[in-house]
Each structure stands twice: as structure tokens, then as C-alpha cells.
Amino acid sequence: MRKTLYIQLLLLSVVIGAITFVISLVVISWLPKVASEEGERIDAIYLFTSIICIVIFAIVAAVTIYAMFKFRAKPGELEDGKPIHGHTGIEIMWTLIPTILVTAIGIWSAIVVVQNDDLPDDHRIVAVQAQQFAWSFTYNDERDGLGGMQVGELVVRVNEPLELHMTSPDVIHAFWVPEWRQKQDVVPGITTFYRITPTEEGVFPIICTELCGLGHSVMRNQVRVLNDEAFEAWATEIRSAVDGGGETLGKSVFQNQGCAACHALADAGATGAIGPDLDSVLTGQSAEAIRQSIVDPNAVISEGFAEGVMPPYGAVPEDQLEALVDYLATAVGDGS
């Protein structure tokens, strides 16, 4: 009798385990596509943990379901169950086995942490500034002649190790690229580091995951991972846009500063809806007024919008700011 009980139970666990296994690891893909070396390591430990958890869950579910059907009292039955008070052997077993399993997860995780923290020396350094509610990126080393260049969108080379030095002037934000798997808070007062080696080309979202105020849900940007050729082409373009000045500069500043995340502007192909539609509101505004709206947005709040959503852009280099204001004033302003 006892033996058949256990065999039935075992079968049930195997069935539940198999079903959970198929559903959770074969049918559904839980994680998005992976696009970094670090992410691959994380996926491996994720898979390992999943398997352990599936086994545990299958056992628990099997015992519960089995007990529900097998040991149900008949209606009106007043008999008590077997007075079993415990069993030292079994208790030791279910203390030891989980200890071993979680220690294994712990050790493997620790190894991954150490490996992921360890970046080859020849990495690119990009300074990231997160502020309510926009990202900006400054290339910190002279590679590709980009030294000191500030852009509003992260563009990196595939397979080149990358270290982000992240700071925030206001509140805590967090930098997350789901395809890279890594996430790191950006904390005022300290510099935090984000180390990654992208392995896939493509465009991936950058998402702020730390509640940072009203615009938190729209504090997004993107990273473009390019192959060497495309990256160099981009670098050349950026350099010449900055050197070239004039209208192209204004437009690229608009695009690089992430204005498009919040504003619509037909000329720049921007469709953001958090802030006013610049095509309609800027008509007839003076350059001075536009400048103030950018540098000190809270001085005048446009009707129907909340204070404190648009970040002040006082730190944009003067020539770029000038070009931006010019661009906005001519692209839409003065009725032209």
C-alpha cells in the first residue's frame, strides 16, 4: 500500500514537472533576445535556477494535488489521520538538499558576478548623465576622434567592451537595456559603473527603471550597436555635424538631446507626446523665449502641462544651444 502510494506520487511529480518544464522552458521564451557576453552568463544561471525551481515546484504541486484526492475525508467521516509526529531522517533530508541546491545557485551566481565585473583593459568609456527625464552621453576617450562629444543617443561598436560611468544631478535613475541583461542605478553624489560587451548589432531600448518622478515612464532612450564600418560612418557624421555648424547642427542637437522623446516636431521626425507639440506652439515665439523654455523650462509653464517634467538643459554647450534655438525658431517659428 505504502509503496504504491509513493510510486503514484512519483509519477505525478514527473508528469507535473514535465508539463511545467515544457511550458516554462520550451514553449515560452521568458527572456528577450540576448545581446551581450554578460547576458549570456546571466542566461545560463537563469536556466540553472529555473530547472531547480521547476523540480521543487513539481514536487510541491504533486504532493498537494495527490493529497487532495487521496486523503480527502469522506463526508461525515470523523476518524482522525495517522498520528505521525515527525521523522528525523526525512527532516534532515529536506534541510540538507535545499541547502545544497541554494548554495550551488549562490556559488554559480558569485562566479558570474565576478566575471561580469571584470572587463578587459582596452574598453571604451562613455560618461552617462541621467537627469529628469532624459539621458545624455559623452564619449570620454579619444577613440574615433569622439573625445568630449556629447550626444543624446548611445551608439557603440559591437564586440567592443564598454564601461559606462554614470552620474545624476538630481534623483536616482537606473540604466537598463533588457537585451544586455544588466541594470545599474544612477545615483546622485556617486559614480556608478556599467560594464558590458555587446555581441549583437541592433537597436535596443534604454529604460529608466528607478522611479524618478512624473516623467519616469517616458524616460527612455536607445542604444545603437553598430558594426565597425557603420560605427565609423556615424562617428564621421557626428564630427562633421558639430564642426559644420548651422542648420544641420541644430537638428542633430535636437535629435541627440532626446527632445524627440517628449516633443513632436515634423521636421525632425519627432512624435513625442509628453510635452507640447512644438510645430504648433512655437509659431511666432521669439528666439529668446525659446531659449528660456529650454534652459529654464519651469520659468513659464505651457498650459495643460505639469511643472517639473521637462528637464533644464543648461549644460548643453553654448554653440550647440545656439544652433538648437536657431533651428527651432526657423524650422517652425516666425510662420516660415
Binding site: 504532493v63 498537494t64 493529497a67 487532495m68 486523503f71 480527502r72 475525508a73 467521516e77 476518524e79 482522525d80 489521520g81 495517522k82 505521525i84 521523522h87 526525512i90
Partner: peptide
Amino acid sequence: ATLWEGKI
């Protein structure tokens, strides 16, 4: 284990 062989 408390459920096991009980009268539930």
C-alpha cells in the same frame, strides 16, 4: 507531510 495520510 502534515497532509500526508491525513483525513482532509
